[in-house]
Write a protein that binds this DNA or RNA. Sequence first.
DNA 1: CCATGTGAATCTATTCACAGCG
DNA 2: CGCTGTGAATAGATTCACATGG
Lengths: 235, 235
Amino acid sequence: MSSLDSSPHAVEGTGAVPGGEVAKQIPPAAVARLTIYLRALNTLLAEGVERVSSESLAEASGVSSSTLRKDLSYVGSYGTRGVGYEVQYLSRHISAALGLTHDWKVAIVGAGNLGKALARYGGFETRGFDVVAIFDADQMVVGNEVGWLRVSDVADLEAVLERTGANMVVLALPAAVAQAICDRVVAAGVHSILSFAPVMLQVPAGVNLRKVDMATELQILAYHAQRAQTPDHTA
Amino acid sequence: MSSLDSSPHAVEGTGAVPGGEVAKQIPPAAVARLTIYLRALNTLLAEGVERVSSESLAEASGVSSSTLRKDLSYVGSYGTRGVGYEVQYLSRHISAALGLTHDWKVAIVGAGNLGKALARYGGFETRGFDVVAIFDADQMVVGNEVGWLRVSDVADLEAVLERTGANMVVLALPAAVAQAICDRVVAAGVHSILSFAPVMLQVPAGVNLRKVDMATELQILAYHAQRAQTPDHTA
DNA sequence: CCATGTGAATCTATTCACAGCG
DNA sequence: CGCTGTGAATAGATTCACATGG
């Protein structure tokens, strides 16, 4: 767990510094939700909606309006009191705060069903993520087309990451090989990794690893379902 | 720095009944981590390890040992002071606390790459989840084999859910149709839903919905990567 | 007026530190 | 002893409530 904050404290309420952009840290829980607001805003934009209130954006995002307003306050003051938010304007500012102003180049390791699903998932390009490579170890799969990409041999991982300029990697491969590939990815200089492999990966400090695990999600559902089944008399 | 986040969704009735001894609720953050400990324990079991300390189980799970011990304390006292935990014994008790003692029957809606990836994901059966049906709307896909299942027509959703006794549903389908299918699933009496569709689904109270979204995960990585790039001036 | 933006209060989670037991 | 289990302390997130300004 890296606690790499050196800033004393996020002192809010300072007037907007003209011309100077001081990067203030946004609480992790707020960052996760900001991505959701962003999607809701883009949906509204596609529907031609121009203004939105905290109340209705909150409802569309599944949070309380006070949570939404607090989250937005970490980004800045981009609303109009008594009116609401301009959809496009707010969307732009959240994108900027999240670092989505330039495209990120994503490489996917593993061209099984999951890797292919990710490579073809249309939602990425429209959100600033560009899938630039997909790898597999199976020689029967190397060279196949996936979307508009050709599957590279994982043996060439370092070279292809270098050549394509990938700065994010998604691991969609079996647990058994995940750590080894992860180590190579880190050694190749990629510091942002999203893993779908059902294992705890060890990474050095400074590397950002996120993990998605379907079995975990189902187990959490199971816990709640089981509780709901117990004869729970309220009073 | 990996972060798991716990359920932002469906609320559930609180169970503090005065005078009655009811299963105590485990904090959501702890539930999420208990699934990880469970996997680590099962790995150890497969390796033939019989005992483990909080320190090493914590390391294998990527948490601090105090967090681990606190989490286990919500489940019960199953360790031996001065020694550690018996792997199999602890695993059993965590499983029981999470409601994994009986099998859950999972239906997958959407037989695209993602749906197929999930259906074939071997990790489920060994963890108490049994995939009993997979659906698609495309008549070219209906009837195809996926693993040992045959793809059902989503038109028969209610009938097949009923017949197979599915009590969990995974939505692996396009955003545009997700809400409509979700409504039908809920109406059919399934109260535990895991969605991979990139939209906010609205469900009635009492329904447990969890959401996994790759775009969100990448955006969170982007935020951290962007921050790491900024020249961190320590005043 | 009205909805935003924000301190203050509350609630939840994590960490500390040590008592208690094998 | 050593390591678990747990109250107490700290840190973080959410909610409340209202001052603020278009």
